[in-house]
Structures are given as C-alpha cells and as structure tokens.
Amino acid sequence: MILQKEEILKHLRKEGLRFDERAPYEYRPIKIEKNVIETAEGSALASIGDTVALAGIKVEIGDLFEEGKANFITSVELSPMASKGFEPGPPDERSIEIARVIDRGFRSAEVLALDKLAFDDKTGYTIFLDIYILNHGGNMLDAGYLAGMAALSTLKIPKVEDETIIRDEFLNIDVLQNYVTSSTFATIEEFHLLDPNESEEDVSDVMLLLAVDDEHIVGAQKMKEGSYTQEQILELVDITFKKRKDILKVLKGDE
C-alpha cells in the first residue's frame, strides 16, 4: 500500500487510527519460532506483520578483542528477496546501522555472560549473531531485534577439547542473563506510530528506536532528518517500557 502523507494524517486526525486500523501504539501480530536451523548453535524466526527476520548463531573459538570477554559480533543482511529495493552486494549503510544498533543493545544490557565464555584473558569463544531480513514490510529493526533476542535465548555453547570445537556436545551453563525488547516509532507531524509499516516509514519526518530491559534504557537511535523534543523522547521511552510485557510474553512463549 502506498499512502501519501496527507492521506495518512487525514485518516489519523479523523479516525484516530492508522490505515491498517491499528492504534498509534499498536504492534502488528508478532510471531516467533525458535530453533529453526539445525546447523546453527542457536536460531529463531521472527515476524512482525509481514516483516520477517531470521537469526542464526555460530560459535567459534579464537583470540579475544577485549581481555577476558568472549567476542560477540552481530551482522545483518538485507536479503535481496526481501524487497524490490535491495540489491545483492556488500552491506550498505542501512544494514550496517541495523546491525550496530542491535549489537549495542545486546551488549549494553549484557544479554550474554561474555566473561563466562572466555577461557582466559586472551582466548575464548566468538559468538557470531547473523540476522537475515527475508521480507521487508517496514520496521526491520524491531523484527531483527526480536529474531536476535529469540535466537540468543536458544544459544547452546559447544564443548572444546584440545583447542577444537566439538559441535555435537554442549556445555551445561547458563549464558543468558537478560532480555532486551525494542520499540521503533515513526513520527508524522503530531503522531508517533509504533511499529511503522513501509509506507509510514517512507513519509515520516523522523524515527526513533528505543531498546530497554526491565529497568534501563539500553539502546537509542534517532533516524531520518527530522528532530524530537526532549519531552517527546521521554514519552516514547515510557511507551517502550509499557510495551515490554507483551513482547516478553511472545519471546519467552515458544519454549
């Protein structure tokens, strides 16, 4: 659906609803399937409305970038099949931004006990979290975050013997310490729309991503060329915390 800005605003001002009949702070249906890839050490498929993200985790061993902490590397690929506008090739600024934002959130919230995954100061595990966007219906950021978080919750660490990984045997440790939930808003004049679809993203003036755990804001990214007032940001922080409960239910659900 292609909507012109005036039409979106007219509809919102008249009905208080978006074109797909959602309220401004309403998510599209969220679905999560865990352990969908058997070759990965952790995986999940997440969809928000039509947007689909698949996250897979591979574990390796090697030298650490940071003393005493396992390496954690997030990357995102916008698969060319996800949208007419995606071309095959190296990551562009969109996929790099999404990857770095998601990475920061998981790191700040200490979702994984990276210190438990180091053998010593210099060597340890490397956790590769790779997220593929398979279908773009808007809000790839939240879909990517969900798929990544769900995949991390399924992560199993393979045993190491004689400096080699034994893929079929796993350590009996708990590495998951926290859950991150995120909310992305697209702002069009006076309206903040949670979980924007592609049309809403296209016509918006400015967008904001917020990531939280139970008590803290663990990630923020203002996107596009517009601006927010400080009050607006704090209002959206509030909404993000309010929405956390419902998202956690789905995240923890498919066990």
Partner: peptide
Amino acid sequence: RVLRGGALIK
C-alpha cells in the same frame, strides 16, 4: 486524471 485523497494498492 490525477487521483487524490486516498490510498494506492497493488
């Protein structure tokens, strides 16, 4: 004809 006031779908 130019169309205004609505939504375009495919």
